[in-house]
């Protein structure tokens, strides 16, 4: 049995949005510590790795490790039915073939006063053997106009079932690496640079020197260069640009993939770029205290 409730269900919505253009099918791997996803795009040029730690959920139970294979487009369609303020609960049986997703509106506390009534109202609808104690919590949200004697029933809980599939995904072992360059910058600014650079060409060079980080593109139209300098003392944390460099690094990448990565921009104010010579770049979006989504992209290399 796996069951995990995320008060901020928006994170899940945004996560699936952030990977569904890159990967079609993937496994959600559930363990005691976390839920994680690792998947590559079809051409094996980029990889996305998601981790949400169990401590970031307000309820988390995973009796044994499970791999839940899902179609990202279909999950995205279902998650679109959840409101941005909804809490989302994921549930799966150990040997089941579906993932249950429950969306609850933000005013669930209102039901507490009306438990007795609700149990009665549920009546014979309760499936045989079901735990009535839970039924009223599951199906309705109640509000009342006290003194007037009117009970308003608000249907504020939605339950969807997503069909799961067996996915034989190729997992890659990613070694712990000490990168020569680590750049932290506002995620919105990174998104803007990638978007603007795509107008000019399809290959981006990222060069980090003591001067700063230079993003450059050359195309038929012309060339574009953006220099980002360290700004470690900006008033707001999220406006800071911090550059740690052991040695200068310059790499080139396909803008098409970097553009896919920026779909994660809404997940947090900050993006972290890790680079070393001749290895994939890591583009990481931290998700509060809950986890992260990391993208790996193989560079283009002269032979």
């Amino acid at each position: 049995m796996f069951e995990a409730r995320l008060t901020s269900g928006k994170i899940l919505k945004q996560l699936i949005e952030a990977l569904k253009d890159l990967v079609q099918e993937a496994n959600i791997d559930c363990s005691d510590d976390e839920i994680s996803i690792q998947a590559m795009d079809n051409s094996h040029v980029s990889l996305v790795a998601v981790s949400l730690r169990s401590g970031g959920f307000d309820h988390f139970r995973c009796d044994r490790p499970l791999s839940l294979g899902f179609n990202a487009t279909n999950m995205g369609k279902i998650l679109k039915c959840a409101g941005n303020e909804d809490a989302i609960t994921l549930k799966a049986e150990d040997d089941g073939d579906s993932l249950s997703m429950v969306f609850e509106g933000p005013n669930q506390d209102r039901i507490a006063d009306f438990g007795e009534f609700a149990r009665g109202a549920r009546g014979s609808d309760s499936p045989p053997g079901s735990r009535r104690e839970k039924c009223w919590k599951i199906d309705f949200n109640f509000a009342t106009m006290r003194g007037v004697g009117v009970l308003v029933v608000i249907f504020d809980r939605k339950i969807y079932e997503l069909k799961l599939m067996d996915i034989d995904s190729e997992q890659l072992g990613i070694p712990d690496t000490d990168y020569k360059v680590t750049i932290q910058m506002p995620s919105g600014e990174f998104q803007r640079i990638i978007r603007d650079m795509q107008v000019l060409g399809d290959t981006l060079s990222i060069s980090c020197t003591k001067e700063g980080v230079k993003f450059g593109v050359q195309g038929d139209l012309g060339t574009g260069n953006v220099l980002i300098r360290q700004n470690a003392h900006a008033e707001k944390d999220e406006d800071r640009v911090m550059i740690e460099m052991e040695e200068p690094v310059e790499l080139t990448f396909a803008l098409r993939y970097l553009n896919f990565f920026t779909k994660a921009t809404n997940l947090g104010p900050t993006v972290i770029l890790n680079m070393s010579p001749d290895v994939p770049i890591v583009v990481e979006y931290p998700i509060g205290e809950t986890g992260h989504i990391k993208y790996y992209l193989a560079p283009k290399i002269d032979e």
Binding site: M40, S43, H44, V45, S46, L47, E170, Q171, L172, G173, I174, P175, T203, T252, A254, V279, P280, Y296, A298, P299, K300, I301, D302, E303
Partner: peptide
């Protein structure tokens, strides 16, 4: 601008 590498050039399958 160089040849696009894939990830298998850098990471091993588990």
């Amino acid at each position: 601008v160089g040849k696009q590498k894939n990830l298998f050039s850098f990471f091993s399958k588990q």
